[in-house]
Simulated scan of single mutants.
Amino acid sequence: MRILVVILLGFYSAFSNAEFTYSGKISQIHTGPQYTSSEDEGKVFIETEDAPTGEVACSTNTSFSFAFIGTTEEGKMYLSILLSALAAGRDVVIKSTDDCSIYSNVADLRNLSIH
């Protein structure tokens, strides 16, 4: 019984922590009408200098690492932090969710910080 519990906890840990983590500089931030349609305006895509670590099964895009909606209050804060980091050449730490709901093959941004 104990062996079964250990095995199940191992599977839970492996699958519940699927995320990208990136620590470094942002190379570009993309937004605009070419990235959205009238139904889902405000998408923002983050391009990082290096590839993030970790794995998000749905995220297969090789250009963009993270995406978020920039028109929400939270999105406006994210965009402000990202623009500040890009302008100042500062490092950021970005983590994703394990979902690609904003764009079908780009991981959704979960949180970020500037260093």
Rank of each mutant, 00 (worst) to 15 (best):
I3A: 10
S80F: 05
G10I: 00
V44T: 10
H115C: 07
S80Q: 08
T31W: 14
A14Y: 10
S13V: 01
I29G: 13
I69P: 08
T48M: 09
A87D: 08
L86V: 04
S104C: 03
L82M: 15
K25F: 14
L4W: 02
E55C: 04
G70R: 05
P33V: 14
C100Y: 04
I69A: 07
I94T: 03
V6I: 07
Y35I: 09
L8A: 01
V93C: 04
I7Y: 00
V93L: 09
S63W: 12
T53H: 09
G42I: 05
T31C: 09
M77L: 11
S13F: 00
T36G: 11
E74H: 09
Y103R: 10
V44N: 05
E74L: 15
L9P: 00
R2F: 05
T36K: 08
E47W: 03
I81H: 02
A88P: 08
E74K: 13
L9I: 00
A85S: 13
I26L: 15
D50G: 04
A18W: 03
G24E: 08
E47Q: 09
L4A: 11
F66V: 15
R90I: 13
L79G: 03
T72Q: 01
V6K: 02
R2G: 15
P52A: 00
I69L: 13
I46R: 02
K43V: 12
S65D: 12
A51S: 07
L8K: 00
F20S: 14
S84H: 02
A51K: 08
S84W: 00
